[in-house]
Design a binder for these strands. Sequence first.
DNA 1: ATCCCGAGGG
DNA 2: CCCTCTGGAT
Length: 222
Amino acid sequence: MTQPDAPAVEPGDPRVAEIFGRFEAIEPAPKPELEYLDPFTLLVSVVLSAQATDVSVNKATGPLFQVADTPAKMAALGVEGLTPFIRSIGLFNTKAKNVIALSQQVLERHGGQVPLDREAMQALPGVGRKTASVVLNELGVEPAIAVDTHVFRVSWRLALSNGKTPHAVEADLMRVTPAPYLTRAHHWLILHGRYVCVARRPKCETCPVADLCPTAPAYLGA
DNA sequence: ATCCCGAGGG
DNA sequence: CCCTCTGGAT
């Protein structure tokens, strides 16, 4: 018990069900704000979204996918051809190399189709657990709660987990989230973190779950 | 633990 | 100015 103040959440906890129930009431069918056309463009978009806002990614992928929306076209573009499209995103050097290498591997090792299993997907350059989880969940292959910066922060503040790594937080979330909410949990936590439970000064005054949050009183001056 | 890395907001 | 943004590889 390294965190005596953070209650251990168990499956069936009514507070957790209430939190997700309210998210569902606000947005029954949450969708990703990243724009994509198919599994390949989804994967590329998610790789590009690391440490970047979805707005900046969409601004780049609009023109990019108009030119290269398949592994073959992307590979043909090459690092030199791709870089100008994604320079504004940031981390563009690493991302350009990864997207081109990823496209080549999808083409040469997977017949031009994005492999829809976690092991094969995470073996692709620039694809880690978080990225694979987003793609697998979004495509309906398997329920997965990808833990990014937003999900990690929100999970801690709401005391849904006190895990010290994204993987540990993911395990807690998968364990305590009611089954009907599993596929949508990631999107709700993302949206909540992006617009309400923001990093610097969370908007507890207008938060729909502030009364269920152990962190809110500190910001509300209670 | 460190590096990558531009854009937007406060 | 500083902090943050749907991380991954070394």
